[in-house]
Design a protein around this nucleic acid. Sequence first.
DNA 1: TGCTTGCCTGGAGTGCACTCCAACTCTTTA
DNA 2: TAAAGAGTTGGAGTGCACTCCAGGCAAGCA
Lengths: 171, 171
Amino acid sequence: MTATMTQPDQGAGTAVAGLPEGARPWQRPPEPRACRADGGHPRPAGRDRYTIGEVAEYTGLSAHTLRWYERIGLMPHVDRTHTGQRRFTNRDLDWLDLVAKLRLTGMPVADMVRYAELVREGESTFAERERLLTEHREDVRRRIAELHSTLDVLDYKIGIYADARRASGRA
Amino acid sequence: MTATMTQPDQGAGTAVAGLPEGARPWQRPPEPRACRADGGHPRPAGRDRYTIGEVAEYTGLSAHTLRWYERIGLMPHVDRTHTGQRRFTNRDLDWLDLVAKLRLTGMPVADMVRYAELVREGESTFAERERLLTEHREDVRRRIAELHSTLDVLDYKIGIYADARRASGRA
DNA sequence: TGCTTGCCTGGAGTGCACTCCAACTCTTTA
DNA sequence: TAAAGAGTTGGAGTGCACTCCAGGCAAGCA
């Protein structure tokens, strides 16, 4: 159950690499844009093994970034061929979809790594995962409200310039 | 006219310092949060000259950041005392309010510098300013839509965890 | 057999937006 | 008058999230 979106534990090792925790509180991470997040990858139905190049194409992330995600513990153990090449599954693509969504909201990579760790630890972390996502949802709601308030300022100023344009047009 | 919010030209020099233009298209700048943007500075009515420390307190920006803003051309020529200390005016505080709003929406500093340049150039740039803000407004609207769509995903996943919690509670 | 293409790794580099430092001057209070 | 505290500068440092590079391996094909 909760199949495509929870990614149960598959290998609990892979400690986090170089991610110092001291995020400045006022600073939001960059928001990736238009990473073909919706309408996304047209998975060739029936397959379940993709090269890193294919995944890069489907997700809009670079192969570099995919390898980096794995290195910092943001991917849940990717399969390898006997020669060591990565083979991503549909499950991995689902996970990357979720990651893309969370990145869109500006969730710091460190927080997503934390979430990925909880997923690896199994069902015992359901409550913690729910808490983490609920907190983040509040954050997103606040952000939406902020954006609406700046929209008001923009409307006001654009109105001033539009008025000036109309006035000079009439003059 | 359009007094407090347009900051007409006052000294056209101050070329931009070290701001390479090559912003990566997918990358949004960080969003400063809770910089007491609303409810803001309780300007002691009647005054019109503030030290950098006072402005830092009112705006929530650090003195470092205020000096840096001036250096890169994001401030419209700040007055000085005869010994060279900055004295900010209410007009400067208005400008910083606008800047704070634009930063909240994730407008890159380079774009705000561009806007500040247009303001310094005077009324002839009204049309360009209107265009710039209108474009940015579209951006903000898109971002709001994105956030709403991720909110749906969050709701869905939180629902799954909540269901699991309720189910295990019943079992 | 050689050539091309795609993948591998660790580590270094990039861009943005600050943030801090050293060494100094100016202002205010005791 | 002395000391504390706030201001000044240019330039270096920080944190995040990638992004790139060199040097090498493996598979497909003319």
